[in-house]
Computed example of a mutant assay.
Amino acid sequence: MRVIILGAGGLGSVFGARLAEQGADVTLVARPTHVEAINKNGLKISGVNGDSTITNITAMSSADDAVGEFDYLILGVKSKDTAATLAGAASLKGRIKTACSFQNNTTKEDDLANWLGAEHVIGFATIEAAQLIEPGHASHTFKLPLSTYFGELDGTITPRIEAIVDICNAAGIGTKAMPNIKQVMWEKITQIANAAGWSVSTLAGNKNLVMNDGMVIQEGAEHYVQYARELISVYKALGYQPENFFAPVSKLKELDGGSFDDAVATVIAIGEGMNKAGMKGRPSMFTDVISGKKTEVEETIGPFVHKARELGISVPTVDAVYRIIKVLDHYLV
């Protein structure tokens, strides 16, 4: 199996390393400093699965240097960089059998289909997390027993889905083939939008705070539930019901069902559990804001705002969170 990861930051590096450990021929296209460090010393992976250094991996800073055909391409850049990245990888066209994306947005499959053709695109969602510690070193910061899903966009399970699922499972990434991959991807973006928007609108005034710091406060938990329920109302209007695909961290079913007070108690309990476990959750959007970087508010929260308006659904908290972050984003670079 040959895999090329286009835009290999923290998560792309970890996925690439895990697949390479299972014998896949992996090429990472990444920033020059990261590429230089990998080619000199190998790719160091630390974190939840321990430490290792991967040397049987190819790294380059330009897709033009990639040779031959690839069974899978995984797009790993920020959503705002998609157009420029795909334009810069035109030399790969005709050499990619199957493509998918790590991104957190609702247009990633369409973007790839417009670039390669719809027949080359599959659905993919993962909640595994990683970060780039320094050039040549990525930390695998979060995993679940079942964290990753692949599926054909027409709802079928094909040999190319089974092949990528099998190697991911062999690599220690809990993965499942899903007929309803479109729902999985929408549920993931609902969960991501919830954590991202809530954290920025609640915690951004203090760069030392993490999610659990706000979740254990009554008012923080109340804001979390109100915001989540409005996001979920849009998700349900698309014909879906919360399934907690990313349990145990996913609690959309609990947030949506029962009384408001019970849901608030659930959020507080999650925060207390995170504190007890020593976890320090911080969504990338929150990290972007406190680091002075542009966010993906339009790609992550925008779909819920626009879909709610289209369907006539009242989401005042979602609207407020979106407006707050859009103002902050205006002054970020």
Score class of each variant (00 low, 15 high):
1 M>V: 01
1 M>Q: 05
2 R>D: 04
3 V>H: 03
3 V>Y: 09
4 I>L: 12
5 I>W: 08
12 G>E: 00
16 G>L: 00
16 G>P: 00
16 G>Q: 01
17 A>M: 02
18 R>H: 13
21 E>Y: 11
25 D>V: 11
32 P>E: 14
33 T>R: 14
34 H>E: 06
36 E>A: 14
38 I>M: 07
41 N>I: 03
45 I>Y: 09
47 G>C: 05
48 V>E: 01
56 N>L: 12
58 T>V: 02
63 A>K: 07
64 D>S: 03
64 D>M: 00
66 A>Y: 07
67 V>P: 04
70 F>E: 00
71 D>W: 03
72 Y>S: 10
74 I>G: 07
79 S>F: 00
79 S>V: 07
82 T>E: 01
82 T>Y: 02
86 L>C: 00
90 A>E: 15
95 R>P: 02
97 K>I: 00
97 K>H: 02
101 S>M: 00
107 T>M: 09
109 E>M: 03
110 D>Y: 00
112 L>H: 08
114 N>E: 01
116 L>I: 03
119 E>D: 13
120 H>S: 13
120 H>I: 02
121 V>R: 01
122 I>C: 10
123 G>E: 10
124 F>R: 05
130 A>Y: 06
132 L>A: 01
138 A>R: 04
144 L>N: 10
147 S>Q: 15
147 S>V: 08
152 E>H: 14
159 P>Y: 13
159 P>E: 13
166 D>H: 13
170 A>P: 08
174 G>R: 13
175 T>H: 08
176 K>A: 15
177 A>V: 13
183 Q>N: 10
191 Q>A: 14
193 A>K: 01
196 A>I: 11
201 S>P: 02
205 G>L: 05
207 K>D: 12
208 N>G: 09
210 V>K: 09
213 D>A: 13
216 V>M: 04
221 A>K: 10
221 A>N: 07
222 E>P: 08
223 H>N: 05
229 R>A: 08
231 L>K: 05
235 Y>P: 04
236 K>H: 02
238 L>N: 12
240 Y>S: 04
250 S>Q: 14
250 S>G: 11
254 E>D: 11
256 D>C: 02
256 D>I: 03
258 G>A: 06
259 S>C: 08
261 D>I: 04
261 D>N: 08
266 T>K: 15
269 A>F: 06
271 G>Q: 04
272 E>S: 00
274 M>S: 05
277 A>N: 07
279 M>E: 12
285 M>P: 10
288 D>N: 14
289 V>E: 04
291 S>G: 15
292 G>I: 06
295 T>Y: 02
298 E>T: 08
298 E>F: 06
300 T>W: 06
301 I>C: 09
304 F>G: 04
304 F>M: 05
309 R>Y: 12
310 E>C: 08
311 L>N: 14
312 G>F: 13
312 G>P: 08
325 I>Y: 06
331 Y>S: 11
331 Y>G: 08
